[in-house]
């Protein structure tokens, strides 16, 4: 009951924090797409570089998030900037890796056929490799987003804002309704993002490649 009244009494705060949360996650994911997809494509052309890049990005992934924030605070201080950088680095691995895998999985015979018919390298990328790997790339974006919505709640600890603010404040003040007011929307966001991006993934899969339902 107290939970419901908390929601009813603080709609503006909750709404603002949801937006802030989305903003943090969104800007990190967008940057990760803009940098990660071309990076993923680039390393398919270079085996050694691919090994190195994938190793580096998976190291980022293994660092616990709270430790990662801690590592960067001495250099960047606390706040949104540090948070977005960490979130971005977290999102990088699934996106780079899926782009790389998606393109690598395109049958070499497809590429041979394309080249043999007189496609340029750019046309092979644009007309053969990308359309066939788009759904795999999108799956990477989806994983990155869902993980990131979770990690963003922790970013509140270093003053980045977002729904984590309610959770941490609630813990300190022993106010369960406040904790839940942060936790429930965060969980719903993650579930929604998963659903919506799953749909986008399906829509982006070319018709000829969709598995019949």
């Amino acid at each position: 009951m107290t939970l419901l009244s908390y929601f009813l009494n603080n709609p503006d705060t909750i709404f603002r924090l949801i937006l802030e949360h989305l903003q943090l996650t969104g800007s990190a994911i967008l940057t990760a797409i803009i940098i990660g997809v071309p990076l993923g494509i680039a390393i398919t052309r270079h085996k050694r570089l691919a090994d190195i890049m994938l190793a580096i990005t998976s190291v980022f992934q293994t660092i616990p998030s709270i430790a990662f924030f801690g590592l960067l605070i001495p250099f960047l201080g606390i706040g949104k900037r540090t948070a977005i950088l960490v979130l971005f680095l977290y999102a990088l691995l699934p996106i780079v890796k899926n782009t790389y895998t998606g393109i690598k999985e395109v049958s070499p015979f497809m590429i041979d056929a394309g080249r043999g018919m007189g496609m340029t390298n750019m046309q092979i990328l644009r007309m053969v490799e990308l359309p066939q790997s788009l759904s795999v790339i999108m799956a990477g974006v989806r994983i990155a987003t869902v993980i990131n919505i979770g990690t963003t709640t922790i970013a509140a600890y270093i003053g980045a804002g977002g729904l984590g603010e309610l959770i941490f404040t609630g813990i300190q003040m022993y106010r369960n309704e406040m904790i839940l007011a942060g936790a429930i929307p965060a969980a719903i966001l993650a579930i929604l993002a998963d659903q919506v991006l799953g749909y986008v993934e399906y829509k982006l899969t070319p018709k000829g490649l969709r598995k019949t339902k």
């Binding site: 497809m110 041979d112 359309p131 070319p206 490649l209």
Partner: peptide, 19 residues
């Protein structure tokens, strides 16, 4: 590229573009 566009090419794996 021009040369290849003027020569037909068929391979065993067929390799029609599925998309």
């Amino acid at each position: 590229v021009e040369l290849r566009r003027n020569i037909g090419y068929v391979i065993q794996q067929i390799a029609l573009f599925p998309h």
